[in-house]
Computed example of a mutant assay.
Amino acid sequence: MTAITETALGRLEAEGRLLNSVLKSTTKKPGRFGFRGDIALKFPAKLADEARPPEISSDQVIMTAKAGETHIEFMTGFLLSFEYLKLLAEVLGDALSPQGKYFLFVDNIDISKKYQCEYGGATFYILPIDESTVYNELLSLLYIEKTELKKLDTAGKTDAVADKALTFDETFPSISYEEGLKTMGPIRNIYENRPV
């Protein structure tokens, strides 16, 4: 059985960044470790022993890494702002690789646009999110039918999505991080209009 410490996710776990997990274990594929949850990108100042939620996080994350490899092979997640790509790349650091497949669904980019952005030695697919979940958006992008995954458990679904994502070879217009900052919209208050 693969331990998280044998993979590129070990450092993130040690730093206390892997939060709210619905999966944090080996998958059905030998040597592969899967995570589904949130990644803390920026912590608030710590007061005494108080554990406070992160100031900034990437939510609805799905990622996989293999034992003995230094990089995350596949990752997808939600970012409230394109600007947070810099934070994400800094947090993931040397766990990013040109060989990895990284998909980010970003709240404040034009809903009709899709981009590729090279940052931190990796290529990120920057995609709009249309009032849906990262999981549903990714299934749609990868042409995976939900019915195909119905009988699988969370680990099995993670394998199926990761395997398909690793073969993804579509290309989108390239933008630099600086260009992305210029074109992004305002950051939405996700708690607005919600009942208290």
Rank of each mutant, 00 (worst) to 15 (best):
K164N: 01
D153T: 05
D153H: 04
K182W: 02
S176G: 08
T147F: 08
E131T: 10
L138S: 09
I175F: 00
T154P: 00
S132G: 05
K151T: 15
K151L: 15
E170N: 14
K157V: 12
L149C: 11
A165T: 07
I175H: 00
I175P: 02
K182F: 00
I144R: 00
A160D: 06
T147W: 06
T171D: 15
I144Q: 05
S174K: 12
E131D: 15
E170P: 03
G156N: 13
T158D: 09
K164L: 02
K157F: 00
S132K: 08
S176D: 14
L142A: 06
L138I: 13
S132W: 04
S176Y: 06
T154R: 05
F172H: 08
Y135R: 12
A165F: 01
I144E: 05
L149I: 13
Y143E: 15
L139K: 04
V161R: 01
Y177G: 00
E137I: 04
Y143V: 09
L141I: 15
L138K: 07
A165N: 05
P173G: 05
E148S: 13
L166E: 15
T147V: 14
D153K: 11
A162L: 12
D153I: 03
S174L: 12
F168N: 06
N136Y: 04
I175L: 13
Y143G: 05
E178K: 11
T154W: 01
S176K: 07
L181H: 00
E131Y: 09
E137L: 06
L181Q: 09
Y143H: 14
D159N: 11
S140C: 10
D163A: 13
V134Y: 00
E179W: 00
E131I: 08
T133N: 12
D153L: 06
S140K: 12
V161A: 02
A160W: 01
I175D: 08
A160K: 04
E178W: 03
K150M: 12
D159H: 02
E145C: 04
Y135S: 08
L166M: 14
K164P: 01
V161Y: 01
D163H: 06
L142W: 02
G156S: 09
